[in-house]
Amino acid sequence: MSTDWNLIEVAESYEDYEPVRERAFGWPVLFEQAGLARSRTVLDYGAGTGRVAEEILRSHDVSVIAADRSPSMLKVAQRKRQDPRITYQLIGADQRLELPDGEIDAAISTFVFVCIPDTEVVQTIVSEVYRVLRPGATYAMLDVNPDSVGVPFDIGRYGEPGRKYEAGEAIEMRLARPGGESVSLVDYHWPKDVHLGRLRTAGFREVGVVEPTLPAEYDGPGLDRMPVERTSPPYVIYTAVK
């Protein structure tokens, strides 16, 4: 059974999740890989409740187009994050954006494709991002590392230990929330070579992966809860240049 991201209660539950790891070593590496420091306009495809767009604006002088397919996600985003530098856009049923060709300086996605079981839909999205990027711009995608199945991270666990998941197979992700509760999401398992192939099919070049871990010098929030993250990468960042 899939997670219905169109439900307002799902959007609000997701907003309750505290992204300590993402802030520590996920988002900073994603922004660097996407070349946000060299950009003026950034597309956040699959922006959810706008938390990543907000984080971008803390450290970069850019404008962000925060696009999502879920009206409920955007409703929460517009209620909580009303920065005039963020423009919210509802993605159409055909995955199309209301943007001209070659207008965007950089694009990111965070935990988008792990939520989609249909390989044709994913390919359409990747091709649409390619369309709106200017030549030479970078697309960086942060996702759950498919090689981290069963690893006991602080955030919870992705899938069952010792089990092999096929491409596109449903897999449970449990996210920790304040108060010790957790929210269970149904994700979909996509091996790295599948995403790399999709990027190449769309026309991207210089396709690669980065697997960040918690830096040795990190001394911020949650440090005592993230020993596994120092050696096992919970995330993978796919990078590609138009």
Results as ranks from 00 to 15, higher is better:
T3V: 07
L7M: 14
E9Y: 11
E18H: 06
R23L: 13
R23Q: 12
G26E: 05
L30V: 09
E32W: 09
T41G: 04
T41F: 12
T41R: 04
L43C: 04
V52A: 09
R58T: 12
R58G: 10
A67L: 06
D68N: 13
P71Y: 12
L74G: 01
L74A: 05
K75A: 10
A77C: 09
Q82I: 15
R85H: 13
Q89I: 05
I91S: 10
I91A: 09
D94C: 14
Q95P: 11
R96W: 14
L97S: 04
E103T: 05
I104S: 03
S109I: 05
E120H: 15
V122W: 10
V129R: 01
Y139D: 04
M141R: 02
D143Q: 08
V149H: 02
V151Q: 06
G156A: 07
R157Q: 13
P161T: 11
K164N: 13
Y165V: 04
A170C: 15
E172N: 15
M173W: 12
M173T: 11
R177W: 06
E181R: 03
S182M: 06
S182Q: 08
S184V: 08
Y188C: 05
D193W: 03
G197E: 08
L199R: 00
G203F: 14
F204S: 00
R205M: 14
V210F: 15
T213F: 03
G220K: 03
G220I: 02
R225M: 09
P227C: 09
S232C: 13
Y235E: 04
A240I: 03
V241I: 08
